[in-house]
Write a protein that binds this DNA or RNA. Structure first.
Lengths: 408, 408
DNA sequence: AGACTTAGTTTATCCGATAGACAAAGTTTT
DNA sequence: AAAACTTTGTCTATCGGATAAACTAAGTCT
């Protein structure tokens, strides 16, 4: 059933507007808030009073006078509660306790040896429990847990399919909720990363954002009008399986030429023979390579390869150049289709950003449509390896604070 | 400045909910509306009264009793006003006068010889003026004009760039508004088509829809959560320039391997030599062809080629099979990235849908991710060549009726 | 004919936003 | 230092709109 209008809705909406305004625009007086939002001073006062009682806002003292009575400044109280963010990786579980502003209070990680859901669940419990126990005493306590997982998640928070974990239909959210008794939000790792960068990182104040997470695969989180876009059933963002080579390499998904085969760590397996330049090689060569030839790279993980790149290894540098180019091709596709304000590239692969960036930017500049690229910003993640972790925590915070939006 | 909540907003929201409910769900009693929307009976009665006074709703008599007093049925009054829809094509201007339900009252079209804005403007005037003059006398008169144009349109309705017309920065909307004195909505042809199919065609009751318009190029209109998605600056949907062949054919946009070079009427220029099967041909062949070889097709327009296809011409059939396959590849990319509920394919190319469809559907079935394709519907336009025309008219109607949306 | 049902309106009440008056606490001018 | 002015924030009366519940209207069923 649809949402209808009544006074409760009005209040919820306005309260959320006031809180958001204070949260985003630092210390403000009641009058400032009134002017910024268009709400009456009295309304702001009333709502602020409630927010003060809920401890979500605090008065931080008097501000500078502008020729009259000094204003009482209001600030969002990040310490009113905590949230837990979890990033479930293939080999590692990272967890953090944060305040409501995304400040990290405690952080833990635990290796993930086996991948079955029960083992993973146990590891998560072990990482989270101490965080819960050591959480500071705050008015609202731990308001929720957010988890980013490497797979597709449906609307109810069930992990439908996580190829790298070998999971299908695991209802992790419900299990954790039962275990800890706090609200749990489960989402895709790329969506969590997008939320993180948009809230705390490279995408602050951006309305339409695409976050590209490149690691062992590629996934995207799309933020449209400030909100995560999840598609009809929650599976949006599987851009790693966008074909950029109609009859290219065969992918594990059954399709061909998927972006992530060329522009993620999966590309390492297809590196050209040493000395061979990818530039001039025709596609026929690519086909031939696919079949057998062992990689010519000196290593097969990003940290190791980054070291070789640092030392100037030609094959490695050439490969990163090609990955950059292919990243640029895919990003261009997203830019032309979506017209985002900003593209943020993150994920483990970006440890090698130094050698990827030039080719990527050049390719986008060459190939994106002129109007689309004119006002487009492209950058790498600001939160580094913590995008998804902080984003997951923010998803929990965001659900707790409860945003209402109206469009005319 | 943001929208804040007050009673006026509540009323606007609820009134729009009531009107929409009646509009979409045929004859309903006040009680039905109350139950469907969750609004109080009294509220529905009040709002309905206003809608009756505005002539947007009418009472159509008593319905069947369900064991008590007979209900007074309410119906949306499509005859309360008119709208004008225009499709500005490269060679043709089509215009229609519709009622508020998208029913066509009058239709006109005029050839477009020269493409300069002044000529086009004159042709549009000539097509529209008689429609305005012969518009029936209705309570609200002509509520607005909607136009679909083959190019990129910014938020203000200015045509930024229309390559096929050779236009750059033409403020068609403002000129028409000044000329006719009614609100004008300008949008991309694909967006208009998407709106048309979503409202009156293959996409009714679909929340997340992608409409792919294939003609001399490819453009997409994306409807997200019932609303057209326009991107950060209004340029979203240029999917025709999504590269599906990283180092493929050089496109006029400067990029390579753009989808529309393989899956729109632009592909006719690259048809393989007669007898040569595209199936087994390597990419090297494609490259070689690009340079010079004249097309082996018996014709170069869709209507003519459709006739050859009907007669079983092998080269034509093979080409449409390949176009179908390439359409499927691009659609798969959109499906994996967007996870829409439904894909609707329309535009001039679909005159040949009979020979395109099998390969397209097979390709999607083969290549789309399992979860994405499981609940996906793919179909061709239901409104045929009128998608954009009716969609444009609907954009005007929709602006007139003024929808309010709230999300929690 | 009487009991029961369903449709739609009327009435009293509640809630929250608003304008404008007012109190509080400054700064500037004389 | 007193008076005049400014800015901040609260208080008060009012208004508009949703709601529940009572009520009227108009049916059906036994």
């Amino acid at each position: 059933m649809r949402v209808t209008g009544d006074q409760a809705l009005v209040k919820k909406l306005n309260k959320s507007i006031v809180l958001d305004t204070i949260r985003r625009n630092g210390p403000l007086s009641r009058t400032d808030v009134s002017e910024r939002t268009g709400l009456n001073k009295a309304t702001v006062s009333n709502l602020t009073l409630e927010l003060l009682e809920q401890k979500l806002v605090e008065e931080t003292g008097l501000g500078a006078s502008s020729g009259g009575r000094k204003p009482l400044m209001l600030l969002f109280n990040g310490a009113a509660g905590c949230a837990i963010g979890i990033e479930l990786g293939v080999t590692l579980v990272k967890a953090a306790l944060t305040d409501l502003k995304g400040g990290i209070l405690l952080e833990r990680s635990a290796p993930l040896g086996r991948h079955d859901p029960d083992t993973a669940f146990a590891v998560i419990l072990e990482a989270v429990r101490p965080l819960l126990e050591e959480a500071p005493d705050t008015p609202h306590g731990v308001v929720g847990i957010g988890i980013g997982v490497p797979g597709m998640v449906d609307e109810s928070g069930t992990i439908l399919y996580a190829p790298n974990l070998g999971w299908e239909g695991v209802d992790l959210g419900a299990r954790l909720e039962k275990e800890f008794g706090v609200p749990v939000v489960v989402d895709n790792e790329a969506n969590a990363g997008a939320a993180g960068e948009r809230e705390y990182g490279a995408g602050r104040h951006v309305r339409h954002l695409v976050y590209v997470s490149a690691g062992m695969g590629i996934g995207s989180g799309m933020i449209i009008d400030g909100q995560l876009y999840k598609g009809a059933w929650g599976y949006a963002g599987e851009t790693g399986h966008m074909s950029i080579e109609s009859d290219g390499r065969l992918c594990s998904c059954g399709s061909r030429g998927c972006w992530e085969l060329y522009a993620s760590e999966r590309a390492y397996a297809y590196a050209p023979a040493a000395g061979g330049s990818a530039e001039g090689s025709g596609d026929a060569d690519v086909r031939a390579r696919d079949a057998a030839s062992p990689s010519s790279l000196p290593a097969l993980t990003t940290p190791e390869l980054a070291e070789y790149a640092r030392q100037g290894d030609a094959a490695t540098l050439e490969m990163y150049r090609e990955i950059g180019r292919r990243l640029g091709i895919g990003v261009t596709n997203l830019v032309n289709g979506f017209n985002p304000e900003k593209i943020v590239v993150g994920g483990p692969l970006t440890e090698a950003k130094e050698w990827i960036e030039p080719a990527m930017l050049a390719t986008i500049a060459e190939r994106a449509l002129p109007y689309h690229r004119r006002e487009l910003a492209v950058s790498f993640s600001e939160l580094g390896s913590r995008s998804a972790l902080l984003g997951a925590a923010h998803l929990a915070v965001s659900q707790f604070l409860g945003r209402v939006r109206v469009s005319l």
